[in-house]
Write a protein that binds this DNA or RNA. Structure first.
Lengths: 193, 193
DNA sequence: ATTTTGCTAGAGTAGCCGCTCTAGAGCGAT
DNA sequence: ATCGCTCTAGAGCGGCTACTCTAGCAAAAT
């Protein structure tokens, strides 16, 4: 049990399914995407799909988990480059890059639609907690260094920043995103005028 | 066709269905809520349901449209009470009151999950446009009166405010909302420190 | 009184969807 | 050579769902 014959082929196939699932979830939403359609898009049979993911929900969780790991890496890379305000702005920037993906906005909406399923909520919670900790850490430092406003506590600023970025992510699909990007918004919130 | 026998009874029934639909969409999401379940909750038969709403989607649009009208009224009431920064903060306050509804957060997520359906997108677009116009109008005035920061244009501030409030609405379910409310967040964004 | 029309109930239906099952091919170990 | 395992295909199935249909009742119109 669990022994994998050809590791390379295995992860490639798995990733292909995951990426097709991501695209279709983004375009049609979770419930309105059928496993059959994912199979068609990925060029596999249902047997193969359910071999890799015992459940459709498991495929979604797979996508989310991959995203979480990506976030983890991005944060630690950013953190090794610098701390304080710079790190926070760098994070906003990396998020903004993600938002450029034409499927990003759709996927955010799709996930929101099934956020109440415990398996989904768990991963999302992990990611949210991770980011909050990152923000609190670096905003505290930035506050101590007087890089940012000090009339609002770092904890509150962290929360507001998260709201701001979540809101921006939700509108990621809008083509009129030219007016004002996420980094500028965060800068406006954090830096005293 | 279209003649209504007892106006009172008609709208009461309709509203009852709408409010039950709202609750169930909030709790289970749109796709995972069955019309049968709404009927059970509202104490009616499927025949009645489909007499009032030819489609499940029509029921959702009905809920959204009711919300839009509510927003319209709230905005004009606020606007008649005052303008500029005060009006913007009053709007944030009224939104915050809405968020206190235990079903609000769930409903926001449910709607997000089907935002790609054109009928839903249309209503949401109307509401978004309405709010943006309100914000731009009053933030411009506030800016001219120097009630708020002037280093960022009112248009940008309007957008950031909308992001902030949308993000807050998304987290409305969280019980730890004690830490920092929406009004304070908007104030922090708008008022120079 | 009779007709018309809104309204309601509830059984019924067609279709879709997530998932299972079986059969077999490829490959590694013994 | 043989066994055991992963992997793949694809037909099939049980269950659920949005919606339809028919029939009857109440009340307004004539």
């Amino acid at each position: 049990m669990g022994r994998i014959v050809d590791e390379r082929r295995h992860t490639e196939r798995r990733d292909a399914i995951l990426s097709e699932a991501y695209r279709q979830f983004a375009v049609s939403g979770y419930d309105r995407t059928s496993t059959a359609s994912i199979c068609r898009g990925a060029g596999i049979s249902s047997g193969t799909f359910f071999h890799y993911f015992p459940t459709k929900l498991d495929a979604l969780v797979g996508v989310l988990t991959a995203g979480l790991q990506q976030t983890r890496q991005a944060l630690s890379r950013i953190e090794s480059d610098g701390t304080g305000l710079g790190a926070v702005l760098a994070y906003a920037g990396s998020l903004q890059t993600e938002m450029a993906d034409p499927h990003f906005g759709g996927f955010v909406h799709a996930v929101a639609g099934v956020e109440l399923l415990p398996e989904v909520a768990a991963v999302l919670d992990d990611e949210s907690t991770l980011i909050r900790a990152f923000l609190v850490r670096h905003l505290s430092e930035a506050s101590a260094r007087s890089e940012i406003r000090t009339d609002v506590t770092p904890e509150h600023l962290a929360r507001y920043t998260q709201w701001l970025l979540d809101g921006a992510a939700q509108h990621a699909t809008a083509p009129d995103a030219l007016l004002g990007d996420a980094v500028e918004a965060v800068r406006a919130l954090l830096i005293p005028s």
